[in-house]
Structure formats: C-alpha cells, structure tokens
Amino acid sequence: MSKLAATIDAYWNKGLAFLRFAAHALRTQLTTLPPRDAFVSQFVDAGWGSLGLLTMLTIFAGLNLSVQSYGSFERFGGQDLIGMFAGIGGVRELFPVMAAVVCGARIGANLAASLANMRISEQIDAFEVMAVDPMRFLVAPRLWAATLALPLLCGYADFIGLGASYLGAVYQLDLDPGSFLTQVQDQVRMVDVFAGMFKGLLMGWMVAIIACFHGYTVKASDGAEGVGISTNLAIVHGAVLCIVVNLLLSWVMYG
C-alpha cells in the first residue's frame, strides 16, 4: 500500500514539475524572441529533415487506406465509395495524425536526445553559470521550430496521402477515377485540410514541450542510460498524446 502511495506521489510530483516547466517555457517562448540562427537550424532539421520519411510513409498509408478499405467495403458491396472514405478518413484523420505521430516521434526523440546529451555533459549547467537563460536559448527555438513545422507537414501529408489513395484505387483496384474524384470533391473542403493543420499546430507544441521536459530534466549522473530513457519517454508520451488529443479535437470539431 505504501508502495502504491509512493508511486502515486512520484507521478504527482513529476506532473507538477512538468506543469511548472511548461508554464516557464511558454512564458519564455511568448515573451522573448528566440535566437534566429538556432531557430532556423532547428526548423530546417524538424521540417526538411522529416520530409523524406513523411513522404514515404504517407504514400504507403494512402495506398493502404484504399486497399484495406476495399476489403472491408466489398462485403457490403460498397467498393465504389472508397473515394469518400479516403476523403473523410484520410484527409480529416489518418494523414494528419500519422504525420503528427511519426514526425512527432522523430522530432521529439531528437529534441530529447540532444537536450539530455547537453545535460549529462553539463553544457546546460555551463549556460546557467554564464548567466545565459537555457530556456530562451535552447528550449524556446526548439519549441517554435516544432510548433511551426508540424502543421506544414500535416498539410503536406494530406495531399501526398490523397494522391496515393487515388493511385491505389484507380490503378490497383481498377475503380472509376471520375467517381473517386467526385466523391472527394463532394466530401472534402479546404476547411478539413486547415483543421488538420490546426491539429498539427497543437500537437507540435505538445510533442516538443514533452520532449524538452524529458530531455531537460535528465540527471547528469544517469549518463548514457538517462539519454536512452528520456528519448524513449519522449517518443511514447508524444505518440499517445497525439492520438488522444486528436480524438478530443475531432470530437469538438466534427462531433
């Protein structure tokens, strides 16, 4: 019983520490300008660096969406509705979420690993000794970079994924291209793409703040193991959070 209490206590303290960290980071992010060069290099790394991975994954996800839903819809005799399914399921949900989860995992892991590595090699302490605010110079540029890069990646994923679904439906499943396009035009509005990008904006900030928290709060004495653990935590918490937040946002937007 006391073990359980101790566990709950530990989680509670960790949660409080996270909220304090997030509040501090948000204040720094909004009140001071991040150093330009650091921001640009982080942004290029987060956005451009994820592009190849994301393109490849969304092509497969789009093809999968067509091929797999064909199997499910065939049972009702509704295989001609794949355009509508790819439009609604893909553009509103699957492509933005997948972009957020996968790019979030990549970006978050990089952020956590780099900050944790700086912490265990005592570079963050060196910043503090020199009276340079590590929040402003290390955390804020990373937060801005992820927050601004992820919506763009989500929007990009929508187009690539829908294109792949079209190719899968028309060239592999021999469905009528005209009817696919008509259904997509009927169902998908530009608003849906923007909704996906808005989701990306929120998820990007959350993934980044969680990753920064796990990386920043590694103890210097934990060494290489601490880097591995914080990277792992950043990936897992980020991915779970993206999926849960997506449900809540979809509920508010479409429910």
């Binding site: 995992a105 892991a109 690993a113 944790a116 590595n117 880097v227 990277t231």
Partner: peptide, 13 residues
C-alpha cells in the same frame, strides 16, 4: 551517449 539516443530514434523510425 548521443549515439544511444540516435539508436532509439532510428529504431522507431
């Protein structure tokens, strides 16, 4: 330590 983080990241991707 940096390559440990990179290994974890590469595995997931």
């Amino acid at each position: 330590a940096a390559s440990v983080g990179k290994a974890a990241n590469d595995t997931v991707v």
